[in-house]
Amino acid sequence: MSASSVAPVAIERRHRKVPVRQRLFERWRRPLFAVIDLVVIVLAWEFVVNVAELVQPLFLPPPGEVLSAARELWASGELLANLRLSAQNWFFGYVAGGALGILLGLLVGSIATVHRLSMPLLWAAWATPLIALQPIITAWFGFGAMPIIVLVFISTVVPVALNTATGVSGVDSSLLRAGRVFGAGRTELYRKVRLPWTLPYAIGGLRMAIPTSLIGLLVGEMIGSPTGLGAMIVTSVARFRTDQTIAVVVVFVILSVVLVSLLDAVEQRVGRWRNSGTHG
């Protein structure tokens, strides 16, 4: 298509009414494809295991078996009990880690010298596999809930502190100046300008901490814990009950997706998060 013919067509299209069917398609395109994806994947899974018999059901049980395993685990109360334990451990670690992370971030970000001295260390901690500490933490705290909580805590503190510090140290200086012009004192400036500016960053940090804290939870439970979802995954594989394994993994995935989208929603509400610096 040559360039000269493009423009008039584009103008014409803007005035033309888009047919209802097409508009509906555009609107529902994303969810539609997601549903189609899900159906195709489940059908392919079913086909590979049950129809073509390419994989032994021991290694990859068909969807139906996973579903019945999930129902069985639910009915026996095993799933709920472990889910509750996991949720407890995660919650304590995450809340404590989030609170301390925000405090630490505020401290680091508010004082210029501390900021320059601590940010490299925080970045290094963010870049390193903190879960490698799991065996050492277990040696310190013994078996039980404590090492799991500590691991979740550590995995939460670092991203939250990092993001909060990035936020509080990067306050738009014109806002600070405007505040000063309107006669705000130091504490008022901090409370009314710096903290509101930082809030989305702190929430962004909490959002970033969800996957890392769940990794901490899983690692803590998969290694050296008899209870929790992570332990269920390990023990069911050891008993070759892969149908249960996949059921628990799916529950865990749903859990993590729900938590992430919850924080996403909060993040969206609070707004500006885009230049929070860290990603992935």
């Binding site: 996957p211 769940l214 990794i215 899983l218 690692v219 998969m222 992570g230 995954i233 390990v234 594989v237 050891a238 892969t242 394994t245 996949i246 993994v249 865990f252 995935v253 993590s256 997706v257 992430v260």
Partner: peptide, 11 residues
């Protein structure tokens, strides 16, 4: 992406 992929390690 959003799932903790290490859950698959035993599998």
């Amino acid at each position: 992406y959003s799932m903790p992929r290490i859950a698959f390690q035993p599998l």
